[in-house]
Design a protein around this nucleic acid. Sequence first.
DNA 1: GTCGATGCAAAAAATTTGCAAGTAA
DNA 2: TTACTTGCAAATTTTTTGCATCGAC
Lengths: 149, 149
Amino acid sequence: MPGGPRWWSGRFRGCGYRLTIPRQAILEALTRSDEHLSAEDIYLAVRKVYPGLGLTTVYRTLDILKQMGLVFKFDFGDGRSRYELARGPNVTHHHHLSCRSCGRVVDYSEFVEKEKSLLEEIESTLSKKHNFKINSHQIHFYGLCSSCQ
Amino acid sequence: MPGGPRWWSGRFRGCGYRLTIPRQAILEALTRSDEHLSAEDIYLAVRKVYPGLGLTTVYRTLDILKQMGLVFKFDFGDGRSRYELARGPNVTHHHHLSCRSCGRVVDYSEFVEKEKSLLEEIESTLSKKHNFKINSHQIHFYGLCSSCQ
DNA sequence: GTCGATGCAAAAAATTTGCAAGTAA
DNA sequence: TTACTTGCAAATTTTTTGCATCGAC
């Protein structure tokens, strides 16, 4: 992972937010992992390479990234928010299936092709009807896993 | 709203949980409202008719109802969890469209018919593949509302 | 009669805010 | 240079726990 400019640098141009070292380090950490990271997970991961980081900065950065549409924020029911990169070269668009009882979460990425036309249609209609500029979506299935049935 | 047995009473039979006054009152409050209620909203609403209620009971009840699949728990980004009845005679199956910037949430229920076959297919495949007993789902679109664009 | 459920007070955690100092643009 | 950012400490808020009492089945 060399140190060239990243795909996200363009997203920071002219949006009022500055692309600082801590923010880059947080984006790198999110890129490096394909887990559902909590703010503290990110804090600990980034501190290994950038020990000066404060937890407050992680929260503030995640909030900005969420508003920019670069990360998703999830509540998987374990008392802390979890974050995932929403786009980027290494990101596979996927959805979640979770157990209502134990909270286990499975990612799946089948059907993304099949979903496409339906979701585009919904997106287009909702955009017009409610005057939204829609740019992402999430599908979540709930149930009981094999151990909890 | 007369006092006969409710549709949910059957759901409590033989599941180990008891159908108590506070639990019924909380379910009534959820039925009465079509908003995205926080635990405190529910607490305040129920106390008008059942002043003895404690906030702790609201949290504990919502947790149980979530596990039973009777309510959905959402994080709409305002720092508190929000709850909705997931099923029942008065419930219209719907999804959400929310603004990444101001957090405004719009419910929509178009497309539920069109979604049906696709979601059933996904559900069936995921059920087999991951050995889950799936019984509900949620779709969430994200974007910028007219005021925030 | 049992064993789960409740409410209160206290505790635990996650997240946010104030502020002086640092730094991208 | 000018705002935007940062990290720390302190504060805020939501949610959870311990425990004696109560009540559904």
